[in-house]
Design a protein around this nucleic acid. Structure first.
Length: 449
DNA sequence: ATCGGCTCGCGCAA
DNA sequence: TGCGCGAAGCCGAT
C-alpha cells in the first residue's frame, strides 16, 4: 500500500499489544485501505487485530432512516470480519471517551482510523490523540487519490483539481489486496453484539422512516454496482441529468457510508470496457467531483457557513440583502412541500419519501431556497437541515459542497447580476422545462416510481 | 437551434 | 502583465 495514504496523527514507537482499527467513515470489510493497513501492521508485529465502531447517539441529528441503513451495514461487517478472525466491537458513546478507554482496557498498542474531512471527525481525532499514548494513524480509505496528496490547499474549482488528480491517478489506482484470515486470535470475554437490542434501543428521530427501495450493506452495494455497469453506465453521460429517466448510479448512499469503495467502482468501470465518453462522464462525477467536495471541507472549516463562500460571492450576496423577497415560506411549509412551485415541491417530496433527490434537481431546489429565504444564512441552514434530515447520504461533504455551490457560488464563477442572487448563478423553472419533462418528473414523484 | 455576453480570478506563459 | 478559460445557466438576438 502507498504510504502516502497514511497520515501520522500521533507519532511514537509501538509497544506490545493488539492493534485496533477505529472504523468510522469506511464501513466495509472489503477494499478498505485503513483495515488493510491495520492488518499489515498486526501481521508484522504478530498480534491480534480488532475493529471498533463508535455508535454516537444523535450523531448530527441523524434519523432512523440513516441509522438503520448504517447499522444493518455494520451487522454485515461484523460477520465478514468474524470469518477473517477479526473481532468487531460496537461501542456506544462519544469516541473521545470510548476509544481511549478501550485502548487502555485492552492494551492496544497501535491505533488506526479512516479519513473524514468533516469538523466533528477531525476534532474527535485530535481529542482521542491527546488522551492516548500510543501511535495513531489516519488512512484515506475513501478517496482514490488521498485528499492531502491531491492538493495541499483549497481548490477553486474542478478545473484546478482535475489535472492534479489525473496526474496522480495512475499511482493510486491500484488493485486491492485481499483481507487475510488473521492468524492471531484475540481472547476476550467480550460477547457478540446483540443487534436487535441495538436496533430497539435507538433513541433517534423515528419520524423519518427507513426506505425499502435500496438495501443496505456491502453485498447489496456490489449488486447495485453490477446492475449499474450492465444497464446504466453506457447511457450515463446522456441521461444522468434527466430526472425522468433512471440514468444515475444510485451508489451514493453506499459510498457515503463506505459500504462500497470508490476505488473499487473505478476499477470495475474501467474493466467493463464501456465507451470512453461514458467512462469519462462517470469518473468525472465519481472521482473529480467527490474528491473536490472532500477538498472543500478539509481545507475550509466553514464549509457549511456563509463565511466559507468565496469573497466575490459574499460581497454580491451582501449587496442584495435588502432586495425584497417575492415569496417567503416557513420551515414547516418547505418541509411539507407546500410552496407555489410544483417542481420544487416534487423535488422536496422525492427527498422525504425516497431519501434521495435527483442530482440535477438538487441545484434548482437549493437555489430556490436562496430566492425565498430572508437571508443567505437562513437559506444555507434550511437547505442543510432538510438535506441532512431526509437524504440517505446526508452529512456528506458532497452535500455541503453541493449546497455551497448552489447558494454560495463555491467552485463556480460569477454571472449576470440580478435581484437577491446578485452574481450567483441563477436557475429557473423555464430553464428546467427546456432541459427535461418537468410534468413527467412531477408525475413520477407523485406515483412514487 | 445556436451563439455571445454576463463577470471573477487562477494559473500559466511570457 | 496578459490572457484563456472555467460544474451543471440565463437571456436576448439571430
Amino acid at each position: 500500500m502507498d504510504q502516502r495514504r497514511v497520515r501520522i496523527l500521533k507519532p511514537g514507537k509501538e509497544k506490545k499489544g493488539i492493534i485496533a482499527y477505529w472504523m468510522s467513515r469506511d464501513q466495509r470489510a472489503d477494499d478498505n485501505w485503513a483495515l488493510l493497513f491495520a492488518q499489515k501492521m498486526s501481521l508484522a508485529s504478530h498480534v491480534p487485530l480488532v475493529v471498533i465502531f463508535c455508535l454516537v447517539p444523535h450523531f448530527l441529528e441523524a434519523t432512523a432512516r440513516q441509522y438503520l441503513f448504517m447499522l444493518k451495514g455494520l451487522q454485515e461487517v461484523e460477520t465478514a470480519l468474524a470469518t477473517h478472525n477479526i473481532l468487531f466491537f460496537l461501542l456506544t458513546g462519544s469516541p473521545e471517551k470510548t476509544i481511549p478507554t478501550f485502548v487502555k482496557r485492552f492494551d492496544v498498542s497501535f491505533l488506526v482510523t479512516d479519513f473524514d474531512p468533516l469538523r466533528i471527525k477531525q476534532a474527535w481525532e485530535k481529542n482521542v490523540g491527546e488522551k492516548i499514548s500510543i501511535p495513531f494513524r489516519e488512512v484515506d480509505a475513501h478517496n482514490v487519490v488521498p485528499c492531502w496528496i491531491a492538493s495541499p490547499k483549497q481548490e477553486y474549482g474542478a478545473h484546478t483539481l482535475r489535472p492534479k488528480i489525473r496526474r496522480l491517478l495512475p499511482e493510486f489506482l491500484t488493485p486491492f489486496p485481499k483481507l487475510q484470515k488473521h492468524p492471531y486470535s484475540f481472547r476476550t470475554q467480550a460477547q457478540r453484539n446483540n443487534w436487535n437490542q441495538i436496533f430497539n434501543g435507538l433513541t433517534v428521530d423515528n419520524t423519518v422512516p427507513e426506505v425499502t427501495w435500496i438495501k443496505p450493506g456491502e453485498a447489496a452495494a456490489k449488486k447495485v454496482l453490477l446492475d449499474f455497469l450492465r444497464s446504466t453506465l453506457a447511457g450515463y453521460g446522456r441521461l444522468r441529468n434527466d430526472p425522468t429517466r433512471d440514468g444515475q448510479s444510485h451508489l451514493s448512499p453506499y459510498l457515503h457510508f463506505g459500504q462500497l469503495s470508490a476505488q473499487r467502482v473505478t476499477l470495475e468501470v474501467i474493466r467493463s470496457n464501456v465507451s470512453p465518453a461514458a467512462e469519462e462522464a462517470f469518473l468525472e462525477e465519481l472521482i473529480v467531483r467527490r474528491e473536490l467536495a472532500d477538498n472543500f471541507c478539509f481545507y475550509n472549516s466553514s464549509y457549511d457557513a456563509f463565511k466559507g463562500f468565496p469573497r466575490w460571492s459574499q460581497t454580491t450576496l451582501n449587496d442584495h440583502r435588502k432586495d425584497s423577497r417575492v415569496y417567503s415560506y416557513t420551515l414547516k411549509e418547505l418541509e411539507n412541500a407546500q410552496t407555489h412551485d410544483d417542481l420544487w415541491n416534487a423535488a422536496q417530496r422525492e427527498m422525504t419519501v425516497k431519501g434521495k433527490m435527483h442530482g440535477y434537481v438538487r441545484m434548482y431546489w437549493a437555489k430556490k431556497i436562496l430566492e425565498w429565504a430572508e437571508t443567505p444564512e437562513q437559506a444555507l441552514s434550511v437547505a442543510i437541515y432538510l438535506n441532512d434530515k431526509y437524504e440517505l447520504d446526508g452529512r456528506d461533504p458532497n452535500g455541503y459542497a453541493g449546497i455551497a455551490w448552489s447558494i454560495g457560488g463555491v467552485h463556480d464563477r460569477p454571472w449576470k447580476e440580478r435581484e437577491i442572487f446578485g452574481k450567483i448563478r441563477y436557475m429557473n423553472y423555464r430553464g428546467m422545462k427546456s432541459k427535461f419533462n418537468v410534468s413527467g418528473y412531477i408525475k413520477k414523484v407523485i406515483e412514487n416510481k
